[in-house]
């Protein structure tokens, strides 16, 4: 790890002033579960690390009057699981599947959204766009078994590593961000972006902005679930995942639906067409399977990851059935 200077501000205003204006100069540290590994592998080499854990207002889970919930960015995954009730299945199931209690204790909700991709070319030092010394991309002809099947037309072929991202999109959450120009709120759906160059990042955050909280609107009447396809139970990442939130009327017909896929695209993937298809229908295995097909209708496999299309499709089907059932 390259050495750095370290600051531990106590307000968000201080924090953003201590952050650099260019990516790479400085990094925020929350739980550190991803950042330390990135620094040890020289994937990021900040001159300064800004610890946000002493900023009290980034902590805590509060249920607001309208029935929505605000989850402070510093809330640990474990605390989130313990605090959130039934209506947030899409989120708590995803967090529970991170089998390590150590990661759940250390890792924060904000950090989960901002964690960097696990693409093995990126982590081996070939850059976010995974190129060799001649600037040729390595993923298309390389081992892309875990890479993107959706949204992979551009240079970014990695998959977003966040398991909470899809859940937040399904629950129509907004992400509170604070920067030099003050606070702003971003739809979870718009928070994640596929970077255009290797020096960009995977979210809309500016280098000197931080996530302060997540706001989930009331989940009254919402049934939500996440289904992740995991090869192994221990310390692992899903190969594909889907989060679904449904509202049903008295006759069990879907009145509204949101579906987001995880670990299949450079961002969590909003499967709006599949969700639209569900509206007005009664959930059956066939309906859920059809929605799964629609969700991956535009998927394009790389040389080695066609199986992920199947996995994503099944994840959508199973998440819908779980949410409805």
């Amino acid at each position: 790890m390259q050495n750095f200077e370290y600051a531990s501000p106590t307000t968000k205003e201080q924090a953003v002033e201590l952050l650099g204006k260019q990516w790479g100069e400085t990094e925020v540290i929350a739980g550190g579960t991803d950042l330390l590994s990135l620094m040890k592998d020289f994937i990021v080499t900040p001159k300064r690390v800004v610890n946000i854990k002493n900023i009290a207002e980034l902590r805590g889970v509060t249920i607001n009057r309208a029935g929505g919930v605000r989850i402070g960015a510093l809330t640990s995954l474990e605390e989130m699981i313990e605090r959130l009730g039934k209506g947030y299945g899409a989120l708590t199931q995803a967090a529970k599947e991170i089998t390590s209690p150590q990661i759940r204790n250390m890792g924060t909700v904000g950090g989960d959204l901002c964690q960097r991709p696990r693409c093995w070319y990126f982590r081996a030092g070939f850059g976010l766009m995974a190129k060799n010394e001649n600037g040729e991309p390595l993923v298309p002809n390389g081992d892309n078994r875990y890479h993107a099947i959706l949204g992979n037309d551009g240079e970014a072929k990695f998959v977003s590593a966040s398991s909470l991202g899809p859940g937040l999109i399904a629950l129509a959450a907004k992400i509170s961000v604070f920067g030099p120009k003050g606070a702003r709120e971003i739809d979870a759906d718009k928070f994640f972006v596929a970077p255009k160059s290797a020096s960009d990042r995977e979210t809309v955050l500016a280098p000197n902005e931080i996530v302060t909280a997540i706001n989930i609107p009331s989940t009254v009447g919402v049934r939500s679930a996440t289904y992740e396809v995991r090869q192994r139970e221990a310390l692992d990442w899903p190969m594909a995942a889907a989060s679904v939130a449904l509202k049903l009327d008295a006759a069990k017909k879907v009145t509204s639906a949101r579906i987001a896929l995880g670990h299949v695209a450079p961002t969590p993937w909003n499967a709006a067409e599949a969700a639209k298809f569900l509206v007005g229908k009664t959930i059956t295995e066939d309906v859920a399977a059809e929605a799964g097909k629609i969700a991956v209708a535009n998927a394009k496999s790389l040389s080695r990851n066609a199986y992920k299309i199947q996995l994503a499709q099944v994840a959508v089907k199973r998440a819908i059935l779980q949410a409805a059932g």
């Binding site: 650099g20 020289f42 080499t45 030092g125 010394e133």
Partner: peptide, 23 residues
Amino acid sequence: SGESAVSRRKFLKGTGVALTIPL
């Protein structure tokens, strides 16, 4: 070869960074 290595070398040469606080 990697982009991160390039930026790191640039970084070590001190070309990339302009922090508000001098180090």
